[in-house]
Amino acid sequence: MNSSLRLRAGLVSIALLAAFLGIWHLATRSTAPVTTMSPEYAKLMGLTATQGKSAMPGPLDVGAKLWDHLKRPFYDNGPNDKGLGIQLAYSIARVGTGYLLAVLVAIPLGFLIGMSPLLSKALDPFIQVLKPISPLAWMPLALYTIKDSSVSAIFVIFICSIWPMLLNTVFGVASVRKEWINVARTLEVGTIRRAFTVILPAAAPTILTGMRISIGIAWLVIVAAEMLVGGTGIGYFVWNEWNNLSITNVIIAILLIGIVGMLLDQILARFTRMVTFPE
């Protein structure tokens, strides 16, 4: 039953993909009649004018170009021509650095706030104001103070991924069941040991959920941030290829951004499952 459901779902997925690719192919093939013009003029106008070819690449063009990229993911021909592997590695490194810094700040701070009603009340207005600020709004301030575009991008990732983790840690720590705390209290377990042996394992699933939301947001924001700061990264690649009018490369980048985002989410989902306990 379960396996047959999975099989049927897989078949439907493949059918949908095939239909999408088919429609895409039909929609972008050459339709207009070939116009006759002098060969020099035709060269200037390109295939779109001469053969009625759609400006939008078809799936076959994208596939061929993707294959080219996959064959040579790490080539480096200077600042404006690097392999996709290199661009993705830059983006992942920025996200990783900003995100890890956010983990290091958000989880201990969330623990403090969650365990102290005073801090919770005192810091609440700041969090409420800072949380809804678009991370990119920090960019000019970061560029001005840090004076390094690459570090500024990392800062933007840091500031966007801190809030879900912080709020989930606070919530997870504050809502640890009273009875578990009471068990630790009757056993005269000290505050530090209680934090690590009762509160941390009890709040871990909630904290990991926050971390999973954060990595998703960080990956969303890095593309926009790299479009702004430029130089390297998948976001810069997208903007650069747009300036080159290479829609094929833009589509490939979109596809890869989606795949990497999914992988990052799956990794965090696996960690979440590891710390989740059945009751």
Partner: peptide, 28 residues
């Protein structure tokens, strides 16, 4: 305050669900 001299058996058992039976007793 609380003391290890006075053990409490809770109505809702209050076991730590991420620990095994042995882990729960060993924690105490």
């Amino acid at each position: 305050g609380t003391s290890l001299d006075r053990a409490v058996i809770f109505q809702s058992h209050a076991l730590l669900p991420w620990r095994t039976v042995l882990g729960n007793v060993a924690y105490a």
